[in-house]
């Protein structure tokens, strides 16, 4: 039985498990049920590059069901886009939340036909701007700098894109949280009173209570591919449209094994739609925090 009702990524969620980061709602119907259960008879697991809290996940798939195994912390099974089973001995709410509101939930979004990117997103003048990049490229720090200047965030870590019947892409808001390293907290001079330690022993912080969050879907306007700083100047260059689909492919946040055959075709065609409608830029991350704020101001005035 679901004890809690929430919304995240546009889904109405009924959950046995407390997920305090999510907005509570009242609803009679749900799109997704999250519950505890024993997961047995998993097909052979394959390694993935999905890394969280020092653990690499393993993955398996079989007709309508996807498994993500984070032994010994938790194992997940996503079924038919509407059920997420959590097999765990964990009782720490922060750890459960960290692992559920992650690629595990991403499996459900994938089953629902959304395009997912490993990145963060903000809303500026009702336009959605996405930042993707390798781990450590500065996605969350960039988004945190925008949030500090009163800009609403749409998601941090996993960006969910819906493409409508007219071929227009929009960003589906995730939930209000930015996860940032201590170094960025200090660089941005964020007050630690506004933040929580992500989990016991972590040097990463969660900014959720006071962060401004966009609740409605927002049209996708621009995508930035962030890379580490190159010298003093922030370099921005626009990709050729034909480079877009392959560039986006490298920021798929879920196991590569999901992109085979018809699923690869589907991902490719959605990426083509995005490349046709949305400018994609490569940007070297601003070299220091003053330059990062200058970029924030530039974006706020030009978009």
């Amino acid at each position: 039985m679901s004890k809690f009702y929430y919304t995240a990524y546009g889904l109405r969620i009924g959950s046995e498990i407390s997920l305090p980061l999510l907005k509570e709602i009242q609803t009679d119907t749900v799109d997704l049920t999250v519950k505890f259960g024993n997961i047995s008879e998993i097909p052979p697991l394959a390694p993935t590059k999905i890394h969280r809290a020092g653990l690499d996940a393993q993955f398996a798939q079989s007709d309508g069901r996807l498994w993500l195994d984070w032994s010994p912390i938790a194992c997940f099974m996503a079924a038919n886009g509407n059920e997420l089973i959590v097999d765990t001995n964990q009782t720490d709410v922060k750890i459960l939340s960290l692992f559920i509101l992650s690629e595990a939930l991403g499996l459900i979004l994938f089953q629902n036909g959304y395009l997912l990117l490993h990145g963060s997103a903000i809303q500026l003048n009702n336009k959605g701007v996405v930042f993707v990049g390798e781990p450590g490229a500065g996605k969350s720090t960039t988004v945190a700098a925008f949030a500090q200047k009163g800009v609403s965030i749409i998601s941090d870590d996993m960006v969910c894109i819906r493409i409508d019947e007219m071929g227009k892409p929009s960003l589906i808001p995730a939930f209000p949280q930015i996860k940032i390293w201590e170094k960025s907290v200090e660089g941005l001079q964020l007050s630690k009173n506004d933040l929580n330690v992500l989990r016991t022993g972590s040097t990463k912080f969660s900014w959720h209570e006071s962060v401004s969050f966009e609740e409605a879907a927002v049209p996708l306007e621009q995508i930035f591919i962030l890379s580490p700083p190159k010298g003093e100047n922030t370099e921005i260059s626009q990709l050729d449209k034909s480079e877009g689909p392959v560039a986006l492919l490298s920021y798929f946040p879920l196991p590569d094994l999901l992109l085979r055959g018809g699923q690869l075709k589907d991902h490719f065609e959605k990426s083509v739609t995005i490349a046709q409608t949305t400018p994609i830029f490569r940007m070297s991350r601003p070299a220091d925090f003053a330059k990062l704020y200058a970029f924030v101001d530039y974006m706020k005035t030009t978009i």
């Binding site: 449209k241 689909p245 018809g262």
Partner: peptide, 22 residues
């Protein structure tokens, strides 16, 4: 396969083999 014209290029994906061409 799936293909598309993007700008001046035609891009083609053989999704059964996972190969991509411009």
């Amino acid at each position: 396969q799936s293909s598309s014209v993007l700008g001046k290029e035609t891009i083609v994906l053989n999704y059964e083999l996972g190969n991509y061409y411009e």
